[in-house]
């Protein structure tokens, strides 16, 4: 699998959850992963039920087999100050700039500059090595902006090209772009088995491809269990109510007569949903991308649920050794 995993998806599909589960799943066998967020929402902290993340890489979870998950909330202003410090040793002058609103200004007026600072920080973590020349993080997973904005967000070069034509920001944009367009990166899209998110996923993939950004996998989230097979459902809709009433009575349910209609109606709704889900699965299959399916965690997401999802991802082959995986063929 690519070392830089970017996770996007329509709002409400659970992309933060999937990114976190992926970070856990990839942190097996002593590996270390970094989970980054870029939208200042503190979604990671909420998910892991810890206090707000600072602008600092901090260990937030351990995975089975001694793996570690670090997390970082990237802040564009702080990232810009970092750069100023790195390139110009600004020190207190940097703080003065901030006070004047210059940093806010520079990161606000040019969204491309803001984005290049955010992606640049993540790319730096992807490439960072320790003294033994080993990568500090085996994988960096980004909880990225939603599908509608992901291509613009990642396509920083185009965004910045017209603004900063020379200088370190320009150079930085080009360096970031090289990482983002390489097989080192994979952009995954999270969806639900519903029409709108699936449509948006298809549109998002087309945009990413047009921008020559590497599309990774489609991850279907919150998949609900199928409790009845469809043939049985058709039968249920087909007028066996008296028999069902009798069976209910035999099973010890009192007043079964009044229950048959709602039970059969619920089954019919279920059948309709199953049918809609089947249609959406077909649309997704038409995208010809590798994918995963994650179950709905009924009781709402908490750290235990995250571990369950990570286990599920591992079962589906995520984290089986570095540099290989179902998605490899299309990552480039």
């Amino acid at each position: 699998m690519s070392r830089f995993q970017v996770v996007s998806g329509k709002g409400g599909t659970g992309k933060t959850t999937v990114a976190a589960a992926l970070a856990l799943a990839l942190a097996t066998e002593g590996r270390r992963t970094l989970l980054v967020e870029v939208e200042g929402r503190q979604g990671i902290a909420q998910l892991f039920e810890t206090e707000s993340l600072p602008y600092e890489e901090r260990k937030i979870a351990v995975a089975p087999g001694g793996g570690e998950v670090y997390a970082l909330a990237i802040d564009a202003e702080r990232a810009l100050l970092d750069y100023l410090q790195m390139f110009y040793k600004l020190g207190s002058a940097g703080r003065a700039l901030k006070k004047l609103g210059a940093i806010d200004f520079a990161t606000t007026i040019a969204p491309g500059v803001r984005d290049v600072l955010l992606t640049g920080k993540a790319c730096e973590a992807v490439r960072r090595k320790d003294k033994q020349n080993r990568y500090v993080y085996d994988y960096v997973i980004m909880d990225a902006p939603p599908t509608g904005r992901i291509t613009r967000f990642l396509n920083v070069n185009d965004e910045v090209a017209g603004l900063a034509r020379i200088g370190p920001i320009h150079t930085q944009a080009q360096a970031v772009m090289r990482v983002l367009k390489s097989p080192e990166t994979a952009v995954h899209l999270v969806t639900l088995l519903e029409e709108m998110p699936v449509q948006e996923t298809a549109d998002g993939i087309a945009e990413l491809r047009a921008a020559e950004l590497p599309v990774g996998r489609v991850i279907v989230n919150m998949v609900r269990p199928h409790l009845l097979d469809e043939d049985a459902l058709r039968t249920a809709a087909g007028g066996r109510r008296k028999e069902i009433a009798r069976a209910l009575t035999r099973a010890g349910v009192t007043g079964s007569a009044g229950l048959v209609r709602p039970l059969v109606e619920q089954a019919a709704e279920h059948a309709q949903r199953v049918e809609l889900e089947r249609e959406q699965r077909e649309v997704l299959a038409g995208l010809e991308l590798p994918g995963h399916e994650l179950p709905l965690i009924g009781e709402g997401m908490d750290p235990a649920g995250l571990y369950d999802l990570a286990t599920e991802l591992r079962k589906q082959g995520v984290g089986d050794g570095v540099g290989e995986g179902v998605g490899q063929g299309v990552d480039t």
């Binding site: 002058a93 900063a164 370190p168 920001i169 320009h170």
Partner: peptide, 14 residues
């Protein structure tokens, strides 16, 4: 000083 710095960082044209 600031315009100078930002100019260096982002390019004069910026």
């Amino acid at each position: 000083m600031m315009t100078g710095t930002l100019g260096k960082l982002l390019g004069g044209q910026f």
